[in-house]
Amino acid sequence: MINFEYAQPRTEAEAVEFLQSHGGQTAVLAGGTDLFNLLRSDLIAPKRVVDIKRIDSLKGIQQVSDGLLIGAATTLDEILASPLLSPYHSLRQIADAHHSMQIQAMGTVGGDLCHLPNCWYFRNGYGLLGTVNGESLAADGRNQFHAIFGNRGPAMFVSASRFAPALIAWGAKVRLVGPAPDQVELMPLEYFYVNPKTDKQSVTVLQPGQFVTHVWLPAVEPTSPVEQLSAAYEVLQLEGLDWPLASAAVTLGVSAGIVREAQVVLGHVAPTPWVSLDAATVLMGREVTVELAESAAEAAVAHATPLSENDYKVSIARAAVKRAILKAVDMLNV
């Protein structure tokens, strides 16, 4: 781990200023659970680390007129403890599924969204695209944990974020500040992610000097005739410190037993969170049954393009979608 300056801004504007220095060769420190892994492997070598945990506006969850704002430095155990988030079942389920008190105490929402891929070629220094002399190592190599969707380009890794699929299914937006001093953007979370086509691109739209400050969630109206249901289902190999092999998150708007709105998003199956309009379409206007959930799950994976060693992930993704749908309507009996 190379030496670096350590900056502790107190405001968003100060953070942008601090991130600008050294030509943008800076890194944001929130919970540190990913950053230290990258630093210690010398995968990044920032001249300055900017710790955003002392910025009051980035901490906690607040109600705004049209929904909720979750500060980027909000930790997973704060997500679990927040009464404001109790209607958002899928988010609580994901925070709860991190079977590590330490990760729950340290890890932040912003950090999860910006987590770099766990692809072993990337983590061992072959770049996000995992190439040697322009040849992809994952394409014909050990790709059992790699993408089964969106893998026809040079990127084979899977998006690491565990919250992104559930947040996208809720229609969340992400608020970014920088790199210009007063630049603020609010964009649908889905558009935040990039499937890189060249080694100059990263996994998100973030530019040097820009960072995530908040996640905006639409309000859930308890009196609305359309009930908002949600669930997330992650498939993990291990019980403790592990990453999902595949996951699915659904949000359903249900009125008189009929699905009126549906969002189905898969995680850890593609270089970005993977929205399945096909699965959502199957659910629309129907009553959720085991058979319907199976059909939607089938539709979700119908166009999968598994690599040489990860055919099994198609079955796992299918099961995750089916179970997330059934879990949302409280029909999951496993």
Binding site: G32, T33, D34, F36, N37, L39, R40, S41, D77, S100, M101, Q102, I103, A105, M106, L241
Partner: peptide, 17 residues
């Protein structure tokens, strides 16, 4: 490697990290 084993766990302001 960071955050891979837990042997370095300490309590900071009441929370395990």
């Amino acid at each position: 490697a960071a955050t891979n084993c837990g042997a370095c766990t300490v309590i900071v302001d009441g929370k395990p990290v």
